Simulated assay, not measured.
Amino acid sequence: MVVNHISDMFVHGNNFKIGVYNIIEDYVRVGENTTIKNYVELRKRTEIGDDCYIDSRVSTSGECIIGNNVTLRYASIIARNVIIGDNVFISPQVGFINIPFKGKKKRVTMIGNGVLIGFNATIHDGVHIKEGTIIGAKANVIRDITKAGTYVGNPARLIKPRNSKVKKGKNCILETGVILGSQPFTFDSATSLGSQKRNLKEPKAGVKLGNNVWIGSHSIVMLGMEKDTTIGNNVKIAQLCNIGHDSIIEDAVMISAGVIIGGHARIGKMS
Protein backbone atom coordinates (compact mmCIF):
# COMPACT_ATOMS: atom_id res chain seq x y z
CA MET A 1 0.00 0.00 0.00
CA VAL A 2 1.33 3.43 -1.03
CA VAL A 3 1.52 5.76 1.97
CA ASN A 4 2.40 9.43 2.47
CA HIS A 5 2.89 10.52 6.08
CA ILE A 6 1.39 14.01 6.08
CA SER A 7 0.56 16.10 9.13
CA ASP A 8 -2.99 17.37 9.56
CA MET A 9 -1.42 20.82 9.99
CA PHE A 10 0.08 20.81 6.49
CA VAL A 11 -1.30 23.60 4.26
CA HIS A 12 -0.98 23.81 0.46
CA GLY A 13 -2.27 26.00 -2.37
CA ASN A 14 -4.28 25.19 -5.49
CA ASN A 15 -3.01 22.77 -8.15
CA PHE A 16 -0.59 21.14 -5.71
CA LYS A 17 0.77 17.75 -6.85
CA ILE A 18 2.49 15.10 -4.74
CA GLY A 19 4.01 11.69 -5.39
CA VAL A 20 4.45 8.77 -2.97
CA TYR A 21 6.37 7.83 0.18
CA ASN A 22 6.72 11.44 1.35
CA ILE A 23 6.95 12.76 4.94
CA ILE A 24 5.53 16.20 5.67
CA GLU A 25 5.62 17.41 9.28
CA ASP A 26 3.65 20.02 11.25
CA TYR A 27 3.26 23.62 10.07
CA VAL A 28 4.68 23.02 6.59
CA ARG A 29 3.24 25.38 3.97
CA VAL A 30 3.41 24.92 0.17
CA GLY A 31 2.12 27.41 -2.40
CA GLU A 32 0.14 27.06 -5.62
CA ASN A 33 1.20 25.07 -8.70
CA THR A 34 3.99 23.32 -6.80
CA THR A 35 5.00 19.70 -7.40
CA ILE A 36 6.58 17.36 -4.86
CA LYS A 37 7.89 14.08 -6.26
CA ASN A 38 8.72 10.91 -4.25
CA TYR A 39 10.56 10.15 -0.98
CA VAL A 40 10.67 13.82 0.01
CA GLU A 41 10.98 14.85 3.68
CA LEU A 42 9.83 18.32 4.72
CA ARG A 43 10.37 18.93 8.41
CA LYS A 44 8.51 21.27 10.74
CA ARG A 45 7.96 24.88 9.60
CA THR A 46 9.31 24.51 6.09
CA GLU A 47 7.76 27.12 3.77
CA ILE A 48 7.72 26.68 -0.02
CA GLY A 49 6.31 29.25 -2.44
CA ASP A 50 4.36 29.05 -5.70
CA ASP A 51 5.42 27.33 -8.96
CA CYS A 52 8.15 25.22 -7.36
CA TYR A 53 9.45 21.77 -8.31
CA ILE A 54 10.73 19.56 -5.48
CA ASP A 55 12.46 16.50 -6.92
CA SER A 56 12.66 13.05 -5.34
CA ARG A 57 14.65 12.54 -2.11
CA VAL A 58 14.94 16.24 -1.37
CA SER A 59 14.91 16.93 2.37
CA THR A 60 14.69 19.98 4.61
CA SER A 61 15.67 20.30 8.25
CA GLY A 62 12.71 22.58 8.91
CA GLU A 63 12.46 26.29 9.76
CA CYS A 64 13.52 27.32 6.28
CA ILE A 65 11.93 29.46 3.55
CA ILE A 66 11.96 28.63 -0.17
CA GLY A 67 10.71 31.31 -2.58
CA ASN A 68 8.63 31.20 -5.76
CA ASN A 69 9.61 29.39 -8.96
CA VAL A 70 12.40 27.46 -7.23
CA THR A 71 13.67 24.09 -8.46
CA LEU A 72 15.27 21.67 -5.98
CA ARG A 73 16.70 18.72 -7.84
CA TYR A 74 17.35 15.15 -6.69
CA ALA A 75 18.63 14.62 -3.12
CA SER A 76 19.42 18.24 -2.32
CA ILE A 77 19.39 19.09 1.42
CA ILE A 78 18.12 22.41 2.78
CA ALA A 79 19.21 23.09 6.38
CA ARG A 80 17.53 25.17 9.08
CA ASN A 81 17.79 28.95 8.91
CA VAL A 82 18.13 28.97 5.12
CA ILE A 83 16.19 31.50 3.05
CA ILE A 84 16.10 30.91 -0.71
CA GLY A 85 14.88 33.70 -3.00
CA ASP A 86 12.77 33.49 -6.16
CA ASN A 87 13.76 31.89 -9.50
CA VAL A 88 16.56 29.81 -7.96
CA PHE A 89 17.79 26.52 -9.46
CA ILE A 90 19.50 24.05 -7.12
CA SER A 91 21.11 21.04 -8.80
CA PRO A 92 21.17 17.45 -7.49
CA GLN A 93 22.95 16.64 -4.22
CA VAL A 94 23.56 20.22 -3.14
CA GLY A 95 24.02 20.44 0.62
CA PHE A 96 23.47 23.30 3.07
CA ILE A 97 25.33 23.13 6.38
CA ASN A 98 23.72 24.45 9.56
CA ILE A 99 26.81 24.36 11.82
CA PRO A 100 29.04 27.48 11.87
CA PHE A 101 32.84 27.34 11.88
CA LYS A 102 34.38 27.45 15.35
CA GLY A 103 34.32 30.98 16.72
CA LYS A 104 31.79 32.27 14.18
CA LYS A 105 28.38 33.56 15.22
CA LYS A 106 25.44 31.62 13.84
CA ARG A 107 23.30 33.52 11.31
CA VAL A 108 20.75 32.96 8.54
CA THR A 109 21.95 31.63 5.17
CA MET A 110 20.58 33.81 2.33
CA ILE A 111 20.38 32.78 -1.36
CA GLY A 112 19.48 35.71 -3.63
CA ASN A 113 17.01 35.73 -6.50
CA GLY A 114 18.06 34.04 -9.74
CA VAL A 115 20.98 32.07 -8.24
CA LEU A 116 22.04 28.79 -9.89
CA ILE A 117 23.88 26.23 -7.74
CA GLY A 118 25.64 23.38 -9.52
CA PHE A 119 25.78 19.65 -8.77
CA ASN A 120 27.07 18.56 -5.33
CA ALA A 121 28.03 22.06 -4.19
CA THR A 122 28.22 22.81 -0.44
CA ILE A 123 26.88 26.02 1.09
CA HIS A 124 28.11 26.72 4.63
CA ASP A 125 26.21 28.20 7.55
CA GLY A 126 25.41 31.92 7.39
CA VAL A 127 26.65 32.46 3.83
CA HIS A 128 24.92 35.19 1.81
CA ILE A 129 24.98 34.72 -2.00
CA LYS A 130 24.32 37.70 -4.28
CA GLU A 131 21.40 37.51 -6.70
CA GLY A 132 22.23 36.27 -10.20
CA THR A 133 25.29 34.30 -9.05
CA ILE A 134 26.29 30.93 -10.53
CA ILE A 135 27.94 28.37 -8.21
CA GLY A 136 29.80 25.65 -10.08
CA ALA A 137 29.58 21.91 -9.52
CA LYS A 138 31.26 20.67 -6.30
CA ALA A 139 32.11 24.23 -5.21
CA ASN A 140 32.57 24.80 -1.46
CA VAL A 141 31.10 28.18 -0.46
CA ILE A 142 32.49 29.17 2.93
CA ARG A 143 32.09 32.97 2.86
CA ASP A 144 29.68 35.61 1.57
CA ILE A 145 29.45 36.25 -2.17
CA THR A 146 28.80 39.97 -2.55
CA LYS A 147 29.68 40.34 -6.24
CA ALA A 148 27.53 38.44 -8.74
CA GLY A 149 29.38 36.14 -11.11
CA THR A 150 30.50 32.55 -11.60
CA TYR A 151 32.27 30.85 -8.68
CA VAL A 152 34.06 27.48 -8.63
CA GLY A 153 36.47 25.47 -6.51
CA ASN A 154 37.28 24.80 -2.86
CA PRO A 155 36.94 27.34 -1.41
CA ALA A 156 34.72 28.89 -4.09
CA ARG A 157 36.41 31.73 -5.98
CA LEU A 158 35.25 34.15 -8.66
CA ILE A 159 36.26 33.20 -12.20
CA LYS A 160 33.87 35.40 -14.18
CA PRO A 161 32.02 38.56 -13.07
CA ARG A 162 28.37 38.86 -14.02
CA ASN A 163 27.81 40.78 -17.24
CA SER A 164 26.09 44.05 -16.37
CA LYS A 165 24.76 44.25 -19.93
CA VAL A 166 22.39 41.34 -19.31
CA LYS A 167 18.86 42.17 -18.15
CA LYS A 168 16.44 39.40 -17.12
CA GLY A 169 12.70 39.55 -16.53
CA LYS A 170 10.74 37.65 -13.91
CA ASN A 171 10.57 33.84 -13.60
CA CYS A 172 13.43 33.09 -15.99
CA ILE A 173 15.06 29.65 -15.78
CA LEU A 174 18.55 29.04 -17.16
CA GLU A 175 19.70 25.43 -17.22
CA THR A 176 23.30 24.36 -16.56
CA GLY A 177 25.94 25.89 -18.83
CA VAL A 178 23.81 28.66 -20.35
CA ILE A 179 25.85 31.71 -21.37
CA LEU A 180 24.11 35.08 -21.60
CA GLY A 181 26.20 37.83 -23.17
CA SER A 182 28.84 35.98 -25.15
CA GLN A 183 31.18 38.02 -27.38
CA PRO A 184 29.83 38.13 -30.98
CA PHE A 185 32.04 36.82 -33.79
CA THR A 186 32.33 40.23 -35.47
CA PHE A 187 35.58 41.90 -36.54
CA ASP A 188 36.36 45.52 -37.26
CA SER A 189 36.62 46.71 -40.88
CA ALA A 190 40.41 46.94 -40.71
CA THR A 191 40.77 43.20 -40.21
CA SER A 192 41.31 41.15 -43.36
CA LEU A 193 40.81 37.41 -43.63
CA GLY A 194 44.53 36.84 -44.10
CA SER A 195 45.64 39.15 -41.31
CA GLN A 196 47.63 37.80 -38.38
CA LYS A 197 45.91 40.32 -36.13
CA ARG A 198 42.13 40.14 -35.88
CA ASN A 199 40.37 42.71 -33.75
CA LEU A 200 36.97 41.77 -32.42
CA LYS A 201 34.54 44.66 -32.44
CA GLU A 202 33.38 45.82 -29.02
CA PRO A 203 29.61 45.26 -28.49
CA LYS A 204 27.69 48.44 -27.72
CA ALA A 205 24.53 46.73 -26.47
CA GLY A 206 23.53 43.76 -24.33
CA VAL A 207 21.01 40.95 -23.85
CA LYS A 208 17.43 41.46 -22.70
CA LEU A 209 15.17 38.61 -21.55
CA GLY A 210 11.42 38.99 -21.01
CA ASN A 211 9.38 37.22 -18.36
CA ASN A 212 8.96 33.43 -18.09
CA VAL A 213 11.88 32.60 -20.38
CA TRP A 214 13.33 29.08 -20.22
CA ILE A 215 16.74 28.38 -21.82
CA GLY A 216 18.08 24.84 -22.03
CA SER A 217 21.56 23.71 -21.03
CA HIS A 218 24.64 24.92 -22.91
CA SER A 219 22.78 27.42 -25.07
CA ILE A 220 24.41 30.78 -25.88
CA VAL A 221 22.86 34.22 -26.37
CA MET A 222 25.24 36.76 -27.91
CA LEU A 223 25.59 40.38 -26.84
CA GLY A 224 24.07 42.93 -29.21
CA MET A 225 26.46 44.95 -31.35
CA GLU A 226 24.19 47.97 -31.94
CA LYS A 227 20.97 47.01 -30.14
CA ASP A 228 20.08 44.47 -27.46
CA THR A 229 19.72 40.84 -28.44
CA THR A 230 16.13 40.49 -27.26
CA ILE A 231 14.11 37.46 -26.18
CA GLY A 232 10.42 38.13 -25.49
CA ASN A 233 8.01 36.80 -22.89
CA ASN A 234 7.14 33.09 -22.53
CA VAL A 235 9.91 31.94 -24.86
CA LYS A 236 11.29 28.39 -24.61
CA ILE A 237 14.75 27.66 -26.05
CA ALA A 238 15.98 24.07 -25.93
CA GLN A 239 19.52 22.79 -25.34
CA LEU A 240 22.61 23.65 -27.41
CA CYS A 241 21.12 26.63 -29.26
CA ASN A 242 22.98 29.75 -30.40
CA ILE A 243 21.16 33.09 -30.61
CA GLY A 244 23.12 35.59 -32.72
CA HIS A 245 23.81 39.23 -31.89
CA ASP A 246 21.11 41.89 -32.39
CA SER A 247 18.45 39.21 -32.97
CA ILE A 248 14.87 39.63 -31.77
CA ILE A 249 12.77 36.66 -30.68
CA GLU A 250 9.22 37.78 -30.02
CA ASP A 251 6.74 36.42 -27.45
CA ALA A 252 5.68 32.77 -27.09
CA VAL A 253 8.31 31.30 -29.44
CA MET A 254 9.60 27.72 -29.04
CA ILE A 255 13.04 26.83 -30.44
CA SER A 256 14.12 23.19 -30.75
CA ALA A 257 17.49 21.81 -29.61
CA GLY A 258 20.60 22.62 -31.61
CA VAL A 259 19.17 25.54 -33.58
CA ILE A 260 21.63 28.25 -34.67
CA ILE A 261 20.21 31.72 -35.31
CA GLY A 262 22.49 34.23 -37.02
CA GLY A 263 22.90 37.87 -36.17
CA HIS A 264 20.12 40.43 -36.86
CA ALA A 265 17.46 37.71 -37.25
CA ARG A 266 13.86 38.28 -36.22
CA ILE A 267 11.40 35.53 -35.23
CA GLY A 268 7.74 36.52 -34.96
CA LYS A 269 5.31 35.79 -32.17
CA MET A 270 4.15 32.22 -31.46
CA SER A 271 6.50 30.70 -34.04
Rank of each mutant, 00 (worst) to 15 (best):
T122W: 08
L158N: 06
N242M: 11
S195Q: 11
R80H: 05
T35M: 09
N4S: 07
D246F: 06
G244Q: 03
T146W: 01
A121I: 14
D50H: 14
R29F: 01
I135C: 11
K170Y: 12
G232T: 12
N98F: 14
K102D: 08
I261D: 13
S56Q: 15
F119S: 13
A156Y: 02
I84H: 02
L42E: 01
M9R: 13
I117C: 03
I84T: 10
G194I: 10
V30H: 00
D55I: 02
I173K: 09
N113V: 01
P92W: 02
A252H: 15
D8K: 04
A121G: 11
N69G: 08
K147P: 01
I215H: 05
D51T: 06
A265E: 15
N98G: 11
A139Q: 06
K269L: 04
Q196G: 15
Y21E: 01
R45N: 15
K197W: 13
I48T: 04
V235T: 13
T229E: 06
N140Y: 10
S59R: 09
G49E: 13
L158Y: 07
L158H: 10
G232M: 04
I173C: 07
V253I: 13
T229S: 04
I111G: 08
C64A: 07
W214D: 08
E41W: 00
E202M: 07
Q93L: 14
D251S: 07
E226F: 09
S271Q: 09
E47D: 12
C241S: 07
K269P: 07
N81S: 10
T230I: 13
G19T: 04
E25W: 00
Y39H: 15
G232C: 05
D55K: 01
G95C: 14
G244P: 07
I24Q: 00
S247Y: 10
I65H: 13
V166N: 08
F101K: 12
N69W: 15
L240A: 02
R198W: 15
I77C: 06
A75N: 12
G206A: 06
A190G: 13
G149P: 05
H124G: 01
V127D: 14
H218K: 15
N68R: 08
V11Y: 00
V253P: 10
S164N: 13
R29M: 05
V28Q: 00
N242D: 05
A75Y: 02
V3P: 01
P100I: 14
S256N: 15
V70N: 02
V141Y: 08
K165N: 13
A257D: 03
I90N: 06
N171L: 04
G67S: 08
P184L: 02
V166Y: 05
C241Y: 05
K208R: 09
S91D: 11
T146K: 09
R45G: 00
D26R: 02
K168N: 06
L223Y: 09
Y74N: 14
D55E: 14
P155L: 03
P92A: 09
E175Q: 13
N22P: 01
D51Q: 07
S164G: 10
F16Q: 02
I18T: 12
I237G: 03
A148T: 06
I134A: 10
N171K: 11
V88Y: 03
E131L: 02
T146V: 05
L72G: 02
V58T: 02
G210W: 15
C64K: 03
S219Y: 08
T229W: 12
V28L: 00
T133Q: 13
L209Q: 05
I78S: 03
D246Y: 08
E25M: 01
E226Q: 11
S247L: 08
